[in-house]
Design a protein around this nucleic acid. Structure first.
Lengths: 346, 346
DNA sequence: ATGAAAGCGCTAACAT
DNA sequence: ATGTTAGCGCTTTCAT
């Protein structure tokens, strides 16, 4: 069967038809100021009529710019991350950038592979939220050495030539813990993730500061580092059930993990929040669906995506260079729901 | 401040250093059979040593292939979609393809814009799950006319030259409804999405078939088309609460919507499953976290992503052409949990 | 088995 | 305001 294969129109075709030079056509299409407005209109019209589309590869080859930005995230499938990406996409779109998105699946190995792909694709810039177990920063230094800006968001790495966009995790951790303390909790367990990641280390520090503020003892057995998975939620519940002296408060750095943990505790007969008050993190949809509804920390994902992307593009345009000396910090907010409001405070 | 800017190595550099021609280097790098094995090894070694990376733009300009595939999804932030994408990424990676991912945010307008971007980026193929309100298929025909393969998955459009990967939504809808009937439900409400989408239309047809099989009356007021949002879940619950004759079963085509609906019903004093049994769809994490746990339909997202991508790449390679005449159908499975098991059946 | 040379479509320095 | 021209780095036909 014969296939219809429309011929690809080039600026040469346009130039010939309009009796102009390819250079003029190129300039007109790129809205160059030196070109006569009428000429531009003429060219634009003809281009549209013939279905001309710029060959980005030829353009990239010449300009050494790809108009593509790489984004590496641990996973796509969290409400938070996909909200961030939606924010990034909106801004990138407005500025005519494409996004090359990939997930590290929480593995440094995969992250390195992703970074290599991005590098070979010659992205103009890279936005990264690092994997659970990332130790080395080598695979990003490759970019930095070539002057390709790298911007971390949420889970950041410390590097003198990389920007960062985060929330104040320490303060959020403090607020969450402080809230539990205000509800009368005195034996609070903090369940967190890998402490190499700033988000978890900072929340833990906030947790500790809140306890210290009340002159409460700091018991390291009350800080449990897990992978924050659903399974971890189950294990924590089982572990608590085994403890001689039970906790009366639980601050878990992830909503889904907290929700599962709460569920198992309820099954084992614990009253939430009366026996154990619980605070999660992220304001994931699950936090509204469990009963009692879960107190959590709202994370401005969309805002974070937009801010990160705006920052990156500002850097690329030279409009506004990234301040490497300190991160951009967005506001988060404690959302208080039933899982942490003790009876006596109603 | 001086910046270290490593010079980009080209095949000309390699050729000069090794006293070979650029053609030989190019062939060697592409593993051309005519090149001497030793020469290949020599070139590969030098390339690695100098950190050579192929300039994909020059290559694409020549070959008119981009090795990039476009993926358009309604939203990134569902467990299902990100699982699909993970599956796609794995396969694409193995075959050396890059993914350009974007979300339509359930809007045909945005979907068209995404498609245009993909088209201008000259993707080699396009994988799409269409938006809620997509009516026209024009923006995909553009690709088809240029012989760029288009493959739909999950939410598909009917076109004689596009492939499709789906689950048997009709059967899944039947199974879900049949299960409710088996539990003694006789007045079942089906809450679904936009019926222009196959996934919802098919589930509804399965629903109807199950009712017909029991000689139950078909009341169109018992089929409610919504946007399946959390808000919709709330509204449905309110609506049910107002009904003179209440339903005794609820089949909602989305877990989060079902979970919220269940929650509101519980607040209003309905016993789940005894007053109203509920079945959701997708096996989203929320389904395990609500109480009672939600009966739902497992959706093989990872598998779907892998299958779709394998199919696409088979088509591009010419290895295995897409069968346009009928869709690829994957197995789904009803997962029975407490939200639908009536007391009398325990 | 290897080389010479042309050209993919675009941009930009230089010229007019 | 517009034109001329020389590549960007790669692949590939044709030649040896």
């Amino acid at each position: 069967m014969e296939r219809m294969m429309e011929k690809e129109i080039t600026i040469y075709d346009l130039a010939k038809i309009l009796a102009l030079s390819p250079a003029t056509v190129s300039r007109a299409l790129n809205d160059h100021p030196a070109i006569n407005v009428k000429t531009k209109a003429l060219i634009a019209e003809k281009a549209a009529e013939l279905g001309y589309r710029s060959n980005t590869f030829a353009s990239h080859l010449r300009t050494r710019k790809t108009n593509t930005l790489g984004v590496i995230v641990p996973r796509l499938n969290s409400n938070f991350m996909s909200t961030v990406l939606a924010g990034m996409e909106e801004v990138a779109n407005n500025f005519g950038y494409n996004l090359l998105i990939s997930q590290s699946l929480e593995s440094e190995l995969k992250e390195r592979a992703n970074a290599k792909t991005m590098f070979d694709s010659r992205v103009d810039g890279l936005l990264v939220s690092v994997a659970y177990d990332t130790d080395s920063i080598d695979h990003f230094v490759t970019f930095i050495n070539r002057n390709i800006p790298v911007l971390f968001f949420d889970r950041i790495m410390d590097h003198p030539r990389c920007g960062a966009v985060i929330i104040d995790n320490e303060q959020a951790g403090y607020d969450a813990t402080r809230h539990l303390l205000d509800q009368g909790c005195r034996r609070i367990i903090h369940v967190t993730g890998d402490l190499r990641r700033n988000v978890y280390a900072d929340r833990m520090n906030g947790f500790k500061r809140a306890l210290a503020g009340q002159n409460l003892p700091q018991d390291n057995r009350f800080i449990i580092s897990t992978d924050l998975s659903q399974e971890a939620g189950r294990q924590i519940a089982a572990q608590i059930d085994q403890m001689a002296e039970k906790p009366d408060g639980l601050f878990i750095a992830n909503d889904l993990c907290a929700a599962i943990c709460m569920q198992v505790l309820k099954e084992k007969g614990y009253a939430i929040p009366d026996d154990i008050a619980i605070v999660g993190f992220n304001n994931d949809p699950v936090s509204q669906v469990v009963s009692p509804q879960l107190t959590t920390v709202f994370y401005p994902g969309y805002q974070m995506g937009k801010t990160a992307m705006t920052t990156m593009i500002g850097q690329l345009n030279g409009t506004k260079l990234i301040d490497h000396s300190e991160p951009i910090i967005l506001r988060s907010e404690l959302i208080i729901r039933r899982s942490s409001i003790r009876f006596e405070n109603l």
